[in-house]
Amino acid sequence: MGKKLIKLIGLGLILLLVQGISQVNAANITKVGLVTDVGKINDGTFNESAYKGMMRAVQEFGLKSAFIETRQPTDYEKNIEQLISEGYEMIITVGFLVGDATKKMAQKYPNVKFAIVDFAYDPPVPNILGLIFAEDQAGFLAGSLAGLMTKSKIVGAVLGMEIPPVVRFRKGYEAGVKYVCPDCKVLAVYIDSFTDPARGKSAALSQIDEGADVIFGGGGTTGSGAILGAAQAGVWVIGVDQDEYMTTFKKGEAPGAKKLLSSAMKRVDNAVYGAVKAAVDGSFKGGTALFNAGNDGIGLAPFHEAETAIPDTVKAKLKEIADGLKAGKIKTGV
């Protein structure tokens, strides 16, 4: 019995040691590359946010970096492989749609580290870190803000493709509106592109025609087109993913900037930064990292020029809701 126990402890120690050694030997990266979803690194939303997160790590740790902007979905794998063939040791892929391609390449190149925004693998892949977000909570905050600000009791949402993260945004938004304004009506529409500002705008304008006086735009440049058009038509708008005051509304220079209430932020930048940092310091591990209200992974952006137009009672209510989400007292029901 005692011998067995000693053996077991010995085995355990050896295992620990081996693991320790393998961690020490874990090749720390010097080159990191990013492959966008169909779209550009200056799209003002999630591709840009991911790129900024990567670049923050690149500057801080003195890495070499590159990116490829994907032009069509069938190029995902080719673009990933292009970076790997140039010696990039870590690849960031952006977006749910790149999920399959990332997995395939990760299995083909087990020594390359991957981080993907908006995708979680079940079962996990050992060299991919999935970065996922509680979009429903971000949407809930946006919905609450919309529901508190609407006068017509009709609010709109122009969304991108109907994929899980976007669906969570929508459901959270609807729940948020209903939470603060049970008799408000939500008009929401999916548009099957993340890169079509013109269609986003026309969808927003038709929601305004239907009486909506707050528009939430959630879906790449399609959503940005929607809120830009709606803001210029004079209604309140809410952005998505990052603080669109800084991007879509060019720090206030774009017309309509004073109508931007806030943005339902997903801190994709922080998540990507964290993933690269982990790969640099050797603590990178495959799996899933969830970002939500509890760890400040999501939240509302500053109000900027709308600061004075938003009553203090609304701000107080929003804070209460944010705290409730953080503490888990408020559930989005998604």
């Binding site: 990116f67 490829i68 902007e69 080719k78 292009q82 970076l83 140039e86």
Partner: peptide
């Protein structure tokens, strides 16, 4: 175009 962007960051 892909490698051109990797090397120089120029728009595709």
């Amino acid at each position: 175009a892909g490698l051109m962007q990797v090397r120089t960051g120029i728009s595709i």
